[in-house]
């Protein structure tokens, strides 16, 4: 009885005894992880932007951080959906924005340059993951160009041919 889901089964219906291979691959799980990460970070940026700006010596930029939070949330929701390719691609674009913003904050007058450097290293790390995941998802879920090679021109479905099939209704109408 170690499957929680068995509780919802009505009596007599089959219950799970042992679980087997899933349609969800490692790639999908990585995408899902990044999706949740996006949502977590987005929430922090939206709810507590001041914490971030203070740590990074970027006081006054809270509205921008909030906007980035909204962007993260949206990308996260899409990454968790069947359209994960779109979500991950938008994450990569977002990563580029983050990197550009952090680079701009690396100026010599920022007393928190060290923290900015740390943040930058983290963002670059996540960017690598995002790029890897985007590529892996494309391989796992994309259509190969040779998928088009199958055309099924012989699959009429009519053992006596299409023309004979067209005549069926005419014959029936005349019969009736």
């Amino acid at each position: 009885m170690n499957f929680l889901s068995n509780i919802t089964r009505s009596e007599g219906d089959p219950r799970i005894l042992r679980t087997g291979p899933s349609s969800l691959s490692m790639t999908d799980k990585l995408a899902r992880g990044l999706g949740w990460f996006s949502i977590g970070l987005g929430l922090v940026e939206l709810v507590a932007p001041r914490k971030l700006t203070r740590a990074l010596g970027m006081e006054g930029m809270e509205p921008l951080v909030r906007a980035y939070g909204a962007r993260e949330l949206a990308a996260g929701v899409v990454t968790l959906s069947p359209d994960k390719q779109v979500g991950l691609t938008s994450r990569v674009v977002g990563d580029a924005l983050d990197i550009a913003t952090l680079l701009a904050a690396m100026g010599p007058r920022n007393r928190r340059r060290d923290n900015v450097g740390l943040a930058l290293a983290m963002v670059v790390g996540v960017t690598m993951l995002d790029i890897a995941a985007t590529k892996a998802v494309a391989v796992r879920h994309g259509r190969k160009s040779n998928g088009d090679a199958r055309r099924y021109a012989d699959r009429t479905g009519f053992p006596q041919g299409v023309e004979a099939a067209r005549r069926v209704a005419t014959a029936q109408r005349q019969g009736a």
Binding site: G12, D13, P14, R15, I16, L17, R18, T19, G20, S23
Partner: peptide
């Protein structure tokens, strides 16, 4: 028996489950 079981979004698994029984 073996069956394809829904576990969540995009998560279908080939699980071992108990056999169905006559209920009615």
């Amino acid at each position: 028996m073996k069956a394809l079981v829904w576990h969540g979004k995009e998560d279908i698994r080939c699980d071992s489950v108990s056999d169905p029984e006559i209920q009615d």
